[in-house]
Amino acid sequence: MALVIERTIDQGPPAASDLALVAKNVVKAFHASGKDEKNKRIRAVDGISLSVLRGEIYGLLGANGSGKSTLIRLFSTLLEADSGQVTIFGYDIRDDEMAVKRLINRVSVEASFFKKLSAMENLVYAGRLYGVAPAQSRLRGTKILERLGIDAKRHDEPLEKLSRGMQQKVAIARAFLTAPTLLLLDEPTTGLDIRSKREVQAFVRELRAEHDATILLTTHDLEEAERLSDRIGIVDRGKLVAEGTVAELLTNANVSTLEEAFMGLTGHKLEDADERSEPHAP
């Protein structure tokens, strides 16, 4: 069952300059990792087309293994699609890879840092890679970390000594330090306690408002999708099965909660992990 909610006609189609990200019929398949399935290819992303508007928070909602993280990795230039086309602010992700890289940043589910380096050292290093001078990185980094509730005296401690929640906040600080035009958040609050989760969510909204950033968020948290997203795309078995605002999704599925809409569209609960995922490399 596919239910893709189009923009209403009176809004008119978005102008090209209003589009932050456009994916057209993107396909990505991997060889299965099971012993008996070596020659079998599994489509982790199966013909997904979507557009994200400039300044929008677009939530990709799906169970674990549904293909949403593969999609984010494709948009991050870490994977190459088998077919289809992706453009980010008009730049083709393959032909204009460096231009795309300058516009994006990503926060993944696992905070990826040099564990022995401090939060500030990691931020300064990241800043350099994106052309931000060290002094500027320290200044901006301090502000963002303090805004996220990380005390100044912890900024110079090795990352490995900070809690998981704090590490994830530093990851978010790192992404915003480089002022990305498109921020890809891959399950940024997974594993965080409720308080840290709320702080991160509030920060994401605040930064969108202040910095005109576009945010593509993947999550398997219904509440988070509802709380943060302007529009939600539901991904199931590598396909985009529905797209729209929360109100549109509820109306079209004729239900009263997002959870019911998800179940109605996919035929299973959000907690039920899809077994398909990227294989392990040899």
Partner: peptide
Amino acid sequence: WEGTIEYTFMAPVH
């Protein structure tokens, strides 16, 4: 091993 490979390869660095 550090877990930073994706971040480094995503950065706009030739």
